[in-house]
Design a protein around this nucleic acid. Structure first.
Lengths: 213, 213
DNA sequence: TATTGTTTGTGAAACGATTCACAAACCCAC
DNA sequence: GTGGGTTTGTGAATCGTTTCACAAACAATA
């Protein structure tokens, strides 16, 4: 398979979400034009994105909503359930733990860790918060490959090193810091401060790009 | 001023963060090479990014940490304090409210809104959660231009319309949905499910891109 | 003051992603 | 079955960003 850019993957996720909504409302078929309108891109872009993975549409008709949805789920690796470890039981960790959208997409938080003794032992919706030093063992035993990192910036790198050592290959990072990982491990960072600064920049330098995101 | 790409702005935020750390540790001067290493990019990229806004360095020496930091803060519009409205007092709202990194960069949450009567009236660190329908008035009176949106996807667009009508020009969106805004209003979306799906894709299609983010 | 070594700033080249444009494929109506 | 209308899939063109490469500028040293 060729190389697929990150923006493309992001759009596929978006299309998937839209398809789920369309299915909900009983729509059977959708055109690239309509997917584009709903996702804020162009019809050509939609078709190009999809064409990287095969040919899913019917000329003259469009795409079958159910079929395309299932193909996209397959492409994105969402047909399987992903067990996930959550590291950091602070406010952000708590928010992520309760985030319905994760679970619905097949991401299942199976363990929560924190190094604060006051948090260890708490029951989160039936799941006990475990001490930081149980991390390696649990991750290894359960074969957890994805971790969500919600610890302070200062501890992030150390935790990452341990997670990777224990077999984690994908990390969703919420700490506002740069992470080094060995080749083969993927990090996605959600950097809220950075996004906020993007707003600040845009508002300060008035009158350029428009919205829709 | 020319057009500046979003990735560039993101990197400027990154540089700024690194400069603050360097200043902390008493470093007076830094080269594009070192900034690049710490931010996971290249020296040429660093210089190109900065060159869009002027010329800040000294050839043969590098950049003065304090000066560059202050210039970047200025470019990003972080010299002023931004009053911010937080809409949605659920778990995500709570996490954002307590997010230290926001405050440190000059973003100050001055009002919290929710439409759940059970939440209205709660005191959050001395700030009373206000009813949803007070939103327009408060935003207008305080001249709030930035809003953080932490409501369910279903209500997001309606809230956005009202915020924009009341004068908000920048929105940090946490709802997993596409938003339409008029030209002149900027939306940045933090889409955690989408990031997670990016991980899922990468892990499913083993052995391509490496890490660092 | 001249020399050496370093690092910036920036045009030009390379690369990658998006948009264009159109032939091919298909549905539907008659 | 034929013709008209629609929409896909995709090479080619365009656009934008990143990387390269090097002259210019400066510090330091003698």
């Amino acid at each position: 398979m060729k190389k697929v850019s990150e923006p493309t993957i992001g759009r596929l996720s978006l299309y998937l979400r839209l398809l789920a909504e369309l299915k909900e409302t009983g729509v059977a078929t959708v055109s690239s034009e309509e997917l584009a309108a709903r996702s804020g891109t162009t019809a050509a872009q939609v078709r190009k994105d999809l064409s990287l993975f095969g040919t899913f549409g019917k000329r003259g008709l469009g795409y079958d909503v159910e079929e395309l949805e299932s193909r996209l789920r397959d492409i994105l690796g969402l047909e399987e359930e992903w067990p996930v470890a959550l590291v950091g039981a602070g406010r952000i960790g708590a928010a992520l733990f309760g985030y319905e959208t994760f679970r619905r997409q097949g991401f299942h938080i199976e363990a929560v860790f924190d190094k604060d003794p006051a948090k260890v032992g708490q029951s989160w919706n039936g799941l006990e918060v475990q001490p930081d030093d149980a991390m390696e063992e649990v991750v290894r035993d359960r074969g957890i490959e994805i971790a969500v990192l919600a610890v302070p910036a200062g501890s992030a790198q150390a935790v990452v090193d341990r997670l990777v050592e224990a077999g984690v290959r994908g990390i969703l990072n919420f700490a506002p810091t740069q992470l080094d990982v060995p080749s083969g491990v993927v990090v996605r960072s959600v950097d809220m401060a950075l996004e906020m600064e993007g707003l600040s920049y845009a508002l300060t330098h008035e009158g350029r790009s428009t919205g829709a995101a």
